[in-house]
Nucleic acid binder design. Structure first.
Lengths: 192, 192
DNA sequence: GTTCTTCCATACGGCACCGTATGGAGCGTG
DNA sequence: CACGCTCCATACGGTGCCGTATGGAAGAAC
């Protein structure tokens, strides 16, 4: 933690806003508190942005870039589809902070500046997971359904991890067993 | 929509607060807007409640009573465990409004007056679903894991239904196929 | 119909945040 | 060292909500 820096950039503000969303949700993205946190005042903010909405918009663009592209690229480096799904789940549920961010972003998807971004991102992720299930050998309709189940399970998991962590497996062993079980179930052969 | 009633009860306020949570989240539970909606003023509110927190507390108690007991009782009337799970999912995901309420309540589980209630309710629901999987023949650990998967899938499904309904199966046929697929997968035999 | 209790409207002060206006510090450029 | 451009602190007015104070209307008791 160094001294407060002398001058701020727009990225400093969007970064702080993203952290605030992870901490307390979009409602805590308020100009004055953020300024205090950055060791500055509103004067700085209103030079970089026309108003709060502009900050929210820029922050959502940052989120879209940082929190979807990166993961897909990482996962694609793995081998077969089952391994990809496993890596996807472990990566995505590993860090508590990302769960909080995901959850708090989705929670305000009704906001006109947030909804379109969340919609794009979610659609893209769903398509990607569907592709993984297709590669794993499921026919189109079933692959879509499995992807939906996997993604809703992810969303719910992130939600519980962020809000009620006590209810999830606490020890590493339990988490591993749970992950194995989830993957086994999600990849179970399609019933006729 | 009848005329504004002459006098209000505490239940009128908690009911309106619950509706406001479903509509716009806990943040929209504000005394003056609620009063306007009820055709009254703050004067009424502060006679029935000491402050906003008291309303939030009473509203959460209402939610706990109304939105968990009822469903479990309903589901228990069904036959075998698979049918119970099926009924549970269809009932619980059927009405868009309940998804919004569920989602918006869980979203503010960090609030000190909300967290304990949500924790109690969620624990109880998880235990109940675990019991269903146990009745369906799964051993204890696996039943717990399936219950967790089923419940996280429910939470994620409610979230998407409330925020991004476009991404879920639109037609009734697609919904039915999806529900069948989910139940088949969740009840697939445990892998060795 | 008076009296008492219940319930509520109005008026007020306070707080947190938004956005604007304005002057001035810091730094590059000649 | 002057000059100009970039960046920011301060001060101000406006809004929406909280909670209090107070007087008064609506209904019950008799």
């Amino acid at each position: 933690m160094g001294m407060a820096q002398r001058r701020l950039s727009a990225e400093d503000w969007t970064g702080a806003a993203l952290a605030a969303i992870a901490d307390g949700g979009l409602a805590t993205v308020a100009v004055e508190p953020l300024a205090a946190r950055l060791g500055a005042t509103k004067g700085s903010f209103y030079w970089h942005f026309t108003n709060r909405d502009a900050l929210v918009e820029a922050t959502m663009q940052l989120w879209e870039r940082a929190c979807t592209d990166a993961i897909i690229d990482l996962v694609e480096a793995a081998g077969d589809p089952p391994r990809k799904l496993s890596l996807l789940f472990t990566t995505v549920l590993g860090h508590a902070r990302s769960s909080r961010l995901e959850t708090n972003v989705l929670a305000v998807a009704e906001h006109p500046l947030v909804g379109p971004v969340v919609q794009r991102v979610t659609r893209r992720r769903l398509d990607y997971v569907e592709q993984l299930f297709t590669e794993a050998g499921f026919e189109a309709g079933e692959a879509r359904r499995r992807a939906l189940l996997a993604y809703t399970a992810y969303v719910g998991q992130a939600q519980l991890a962020a809000r009620l962590p006590d209810l999830l497996p606490a020890d590493t062993g339990g988490q591993g067993a749970y992950l194995d079980s989830v993957l086994t179930v999600l990849l179970s052969p399609a019933g006729g």
